[in-house]
C-alpha cells in the first residue's frame, strides 16, 4: 500500500479545513444520523444532504477526482450489503434507499477524514473524555502505521524476490511467517519506544 495519499489533502488551506474539528465532527455525525432515520418520503432531505456535501467538497479545494475515487473504492461494500434488502417486500425501493443513505453517509465521512488531520481528531477524542489509554494507543498507532507498513512492504518484497513457488499452502505459510516476523519487530520496536519514552521523562 502506498500511504502518501493518506493526509495528502488534510492540511490544505480552505474554509472547510479551517473549521474547528468538533464542528466538522458534529456536522458529519448529524448528517449520518439523519441518514439513518431517513424514509423514502424524505427525499428532499437527501437532496439537501447531497447539495451540502457537494458544496463542502467544492469549498474544501480537494480535487473532485480524488474524493470520487475514495468514494468508488468503498462503494462496492455498500451495494453488496444493500442487496440484502432485495429479499424483502418492496425490495427495489428499500435497496435504492439503503444505497442512497449509505453513499451520502460515506461521502460525509470521506469529506471529514480528508479535511481533518488525525492529530485534531485525537485532540477532540481527548476532550470528549475518551480514556487516555485509548487515545495514547491511537496516537502511537497512527504514528507507527507508516513505519510498519513500510516494514511490511520491505518484507513482502524480500520474500517475493526469493519465492519461486506458487503453491497455496506454501504461500499461506509465508504470509503467516511474514506476519509473525512483523509482530516480533513491532514488539521489539515497542521496547525501544518504551525506553525512549522513559528517557524523555514520560511518567506512566
Amino acid at each position: 500500500m502506498r500511504h502518501d495519499f493518506l493526509d495528502r489533502y488534510s492540511r490544505l488551506a480552505s474554509p472547510v479545513h479551517a473549521l474547528p474539528a468538533w464542528l466538522k465532527a458534529l456536522a458529519t455525525l448529524t448528517l449520518v444520523m439523519a441518514m439513518a432515520v431517513a424514509r423514502p418520503s424524505w427525499w428532499p432531505a437527501l437532496v439537501v444532504a447531497t447539495a451540502l456535501l457537494v458544496a463542502g467538497a467544492w469549498l474544501s479545494r480537494i480535487p473532485a477526482g480524488f474524493l470520487l475515487r475514495r468514494l468508488l473504492l468503498l462503494e462496492p461494500v455498500v451495494v453488496v450489503v444493500a442487496t440484502l434488502a432485495l429479499w424483502q417486500p418492496d425490495g427495489g425501493m428499500r435497496f435504492a434507499l439503503l444505497v442512497a443513505r449509505s453513499t451520502l453517509s460515506l461521502a460525509a465521512l470521506i469529506l471529514f477524514t480528508n479535511t481533518t488531520p488525525f492529530g485534531e481528531v485525537l485532540e477532540l477524542l481527548r476532550r470528549c473524555r475518551v480514556p487516555s489509554l485509548l487515545v495514547t494507543v491511537l496516537a502511537l498507532m497512527y504514528r507507527y502505521v507508516f513505519v510498519l507498513v513500510d516494514e511490511a512492504a520491505r518484507l513482502q518484497r524480500a520474500r517475493a524476490s526469493r519465492a519461486f513457488s506458487r503453491s497455496a499452502a506454501r504461500s499461506w505459510r509465508s504470509v503467516a511467517s511474514g506476519a509473525g516476523q512483523l509482530f516480533v519487530r513491532s514488539s521489539e520496536r515497542a521496547e525501544r519506544v518504551f525506553t525512549a519514552m522513559c528517557a524523555r521523562g514520560w511518567r506512566p
Binding site: 489509554l133 495514547t136 494507543v137 491511537l138 496516537a139 502511537l140 498507532m141 504514528r143 507507527y144 502505521v145 513505519v147 510498519l148 507498513v149 511490511a152 512483523l182 509482530f183 513491532s186 514488539s187 520496536r189 515497542a190 521496547e191 519506544v193 518504551f194 519514552m197 506512566p204
Partner: peptide, 15 residues
Amino acid sequence: RQVPLMGLAATFVFA
C-alpha cells in the same frame, strides 16, 4: 512498558 506495546500491536493488527 505494555502501553507502547499496545500501540504497536494495534499497528500490527492493522498491517
